[in-house]
Design a protein around this nucleic acid. Structure first.
Length: 242
DNA sequence: AAGTGCTCCAACCGCGTGCAG
DNA sequence: ACTGCACGCGGTTGGAGCACT
């Protein structure tokens, strides 16, 4: 509905974040937690709009953000998830701990897309060290402050029933959770119809959803399903139906 | 060394959705 | 039912830095 004007206020900083701004934001969120982004800048004393603060926190200052080049394993997962989910970067990022949707989107648009099209790639640019602010944060002993990690390739194990926790994805997750057992794809007649069994929504079912996602992403089966987007369509229909 | 073009990625923008009143 | 706010998402942009000439 009504879109609130954002970043229209005069006198707000734009563009690259300064070290001091990072520090103020990180300290504020550490103390007060995430949320209330709109009022955050005023309360924290930042000359930024809430949106900008939220983005900076989520994409850069949040603890456990994984910096560094995307590993082969991560890349492979991105490709397969993209086949499955399309440009739903936040969902894809939900399967790659420490990676942000923005990062994955950028990686896709710059590197993977070209790779898949067989276009030559320039040698991967070494990420420059974080901005000064971040290196200051990095040096801190505060456990809340960002932890820089090399790409570990240690992908998320499906302990969480949902891919992420935003309301939108929760809805998708819930929708899928209504369907219990892993679907059987490919009825043998060449079609890729799916056979679902409707179950009531329960915690158990929600957990099955994680298993389902793993099953989808799993080597071989992923391709089997993804060769035909009928399966994905089921997801979307389901989403609307919810 | 200087100029130019290209790449990458942080940040911005606009829109959709959920929710409270 | 309607309105407005807050937030999240995906697409796009702009500039810093690199490669190439």
């Amino acid at each position: 509905m009504g879109r609130s004007p954002c970043c229209s206020e005069e006198g707000l900083n734009r563009g690259t974040w300064m070290a001091e701004e990072d520090e103020i934001l990180a300290r504020y969120v550490r103390v007060h937690g995430e949320g209330n982004w709109r009022s955050l800048p005023k309360r924290a004393g930042l000359k930024r709009c809430g949106k900008s603060c939220r983005l900076r926190w989520l994409n850069y200052l949040r603890p456990n953000i994984k910096r560094g080049n995307i590993s082969e394993q991560e890349e492979d997962l991105i490709v397969r998830l993209h086949k499955l989910l399309g440009n739903r970067w936040s969902l894809i990022a939900g399967r790659l701990p420490g990676r942000t949707d923005n990062e994955i989107k950028n990686y896709w648009n710059t590197t993977l897309w070209k790779k898949l099209q067989g276009r030559p790639l320039r040698a991967p640019k070494q990420r420059k060290p974080l901005a000064e602010a971040s290196s200051q944060l990095q040096a801190s002993a505060d456990p809340y402050e960002r932890q820089l990690q090399p790409p570990s390739g240690d992908l998320q194990t499906p302990t969480s029933p949902l891919l992420s926790h935003t309301p939108k994805e929760s809805t998708v997750g819930l929708g899928l959770a209504k369907f219990g057992d892993v679907p059987q794809v490919g009825a043998g007649d060449g079609s890729s119809s799916c056979h679902w069994q409707v179950e009531s929504v329960s915690d158990e079912a929600l957990c099955d959803r994680a298993a389902l996602m793993d099953w989808l992403v799993d080597e071989g089966r992923g391709h089997e399903i993804l060769g035909d987007f009928q399966f994905m369509a089921s997801f979307l229909d389901l989403e609307e139906w919810m």
